[in-house]
Amino acid sequence: MLNKQKGNGMKKTLKLLALATALAITGAATAAAEQVKVGIAAEPYPPFTSPDASGNWQGWEIEFMKAMCAEAKLDCVVTPVAWDGIIPALTSKKIDMIIGSLSITAERQKTIDFSDKYYNTPTGIIGAKGDDITPTPEGLAGKTIGVQVSTVHQAYAMKHFAPAGVEVKEYQTQDEANQDLAAGRVDAVQADAIALDAFLESDQGKQCCDYKGEVAEDVDVIGPGVGVGLRKGETELKEKINAAIKAIRENGTYEAFSKKYFDFDIYGG
């Protein structure tokens, strides 16, 4: 009898606790304004996105985001997420769009939607100085190449290099792949030519490595350029963004902030 009573009391306490917990989790988070969370990869990816010492994100892509959001009248908030979970973060609504040098590919379009492209750069390969590497399957045979996971470069390396006997090593961030090239753990790194250039200009990059050339084109894998990643079915947002990209291209804003970073047209042909 006594036991029974205790059990009931406990159940009540349990329920109260569960309720309190649920409130504690949700309570503070309900105050949501009409913000658009822009997902970027939480890693240094110069010159596109990179954290500075005061914790702010900066780079060409951040400037693009600001200009585009201002044009489209969106209240954009930078939300860093892990690169390898950036598409799940979008589909599970942790973020509302991806501005993370995400190439438009058929494979990704099965899962998410893209705006029009906002930049397009070639894909290159770097390696240790004095190492005679050519950016071809034959030139890399027997070597180890580092790529960032879930990138077009990984897909490219798996398709073209791996069958030729190249060991493909995958890294969570581009920066780690570069670091391992400098540390001599891989022989080459394949990535976006502009991002590689930024590494080669750093102290570490200058010392260890140089540019070995562009890889042969394969639009099926590399895609036509980089676009804003969006959830499927959000056509209104997509049209807003497309219009904004077009507008900043036409009114000179795009050119103005791009000049600070590049001496060529990053939009591509």
Binding site: D84, I87, P88, T91, S92, V149, S150
Partner: peptide, 9 residues
């Protein structure tokens, strides 16, 4: 790798 290649979570 499965997660990255299939976009399943």
């Amino acid at each position: 790798k499965v997660r990255q290649e299939t976009y399943l979570t």
